Amino acid sequence: MSSRQRRNDSAPQYLDATTLTAWRNVRDAGEVVVSRISAEMENQSGLSLDWYGILLHIYEGGEDGRLPQRELERHLYLSQSGISRMVSKMQEAGLLRREPSPHDRRNVYVVLTDLGRDVFLRATPVHHAAVQRHFGSWLSDDEIASIGRGLQKVLTAEGGSEIQCGEELDRLVTFGQSVLALTSDTVAVSDAILVRDALEPLLLADAARHVTPSAVQDMRAIVARMSTLIDSPEEFFRSDWELHRLLAGYCHNELLRSMYLTLLGTLSSRLDSVVPTTNLTPYLYERLSVHARLVEAVSSGDEDQVAEAAHAHHFTMARTRLVDAPGE
């Protein structure tokens, strides 16, 4: 039996320098990383990390989007009054509502509203990207697995519950104001969306100089098809990407065309489904209008019209706050 095992079996226990250093690193790294992730979440979504944590627990642990408030207190290690105040603020923001428990008058259920569910799903890719950037990118797979196993032992030994992360949420990526569920490679697809968006004005400007009248008719036909697919969002986006492949074919810059098509393929080949959110239908109508204007701008060959249409199509550089806390 090792000396460390013997120390774990007896009390009081001797605290060696290695253990003390590890504890300080966990404490300090946790504070730094949480601060950075929280700031990024606030900046890009308007949702605090604490609020995201509450939405996460209700979404994953609740039944039909509802969870006893006592369960939140148990999982989040906050006081009853602290949880109550936070839930009240989220209720004011329209993310949650309270319902009396049918089984226990002393307890209430905290319930996700439609807005709360939408905000949570759209904020999840922002959260995951921030975690990867400020935590995962600095560690190897083996180091992450080792840290996860070690800290899980501490949690369970101190009366905490085992943490299970749903794979469904790991597959989400924001696409404009919609949320896509992917088959794999979420980080790669997020990067592909960002780079494709940056290249698109250059590609559209070049395509507008070489597009043919027959190609314009083909593009208008695709837009007309998209108008019939509002209730089939996966097919809507596949038609959207077909339109952009057609446009790319008229770009005479071979390097630009090849890069663009590769990025588009990275996205389209990994689409599993479009997550149903309350804003989805109006958003698809908005994108339909954007693409109709895009086709007409390209067909005109006018550089200013093409630039304006490309700007309207561009959505990854400007982040939209998903929610504003009361009083903001």
Rank of each mutant, 00 (worst) to 15 (best):
residue 32 V to A: 09
residue 117 R to P: 00
residue 16 D to R: 06
residue 116 G to V: 07
residue 120 F to V: 08
residue 119 V to T: 11
residue 38 S to W: 01
residue 125 P to F: 04
residue 49 L to C: 04
residue 56 L to Y: 12
residue 22 A to D: 05
residue 30 G to Y: 06
residue 94 G to N: 10
residue 63 E to V: 12
residue 10 S to H: 08
residue 108 V to E: 09
residue 101 S to L: 09
residue 14 Y to A: 03
residue 128 H to L: 15
residue 22 A to C: 07
residue 129 A to H: 05
residue 36 R to Y: 08
residue 70 R to S: 15
residue 51 W to E: 14
residue 126 V to A: 01
residue 29 A to M: 09
residue 95 L to M: 10
residue 33 V to S: 04
residue 83 I to C: 07
residue 73 E to A: 13
residue 26 V to S: 04
residue 112 L to R: 01
residue 23 W to Y: 10
residue 39 A to K: 06
residue 111 V to E: 11
residue 68 P to D: 10
residue 68 P to S: 12
residue 65 G to C: 06
residue 113 T to M: 06
residue 78 L to F: 10
residue 23 W to R: 13
residue 10 S to Y: 01
residue 65 G to S: 03
residue 66 R to D: 11
residue 13 Q to T: 12
residue 79 S to K: 04
residue 102 P to L: 12
residue 114 D to G: 07
residue 115 L to K: 11
residue 46 G to C: 10
residue 102 P to Y: 01
residue 35 S to R: 12
residue 94 G to H: 07
residue 42 E to L: 14
residue 118 D to N: 10
residue 12 P to C: 13
residue 11 A to G: 00
residue 62 G to M: 05
residue 55 L to Q: 04
residue 123 A to H: 01
residue 19 T to G: 10
residue 88 S to M: 05
residue 48 S to N: 02
residue 46 G to N: 08
residue 55 L to H: 06
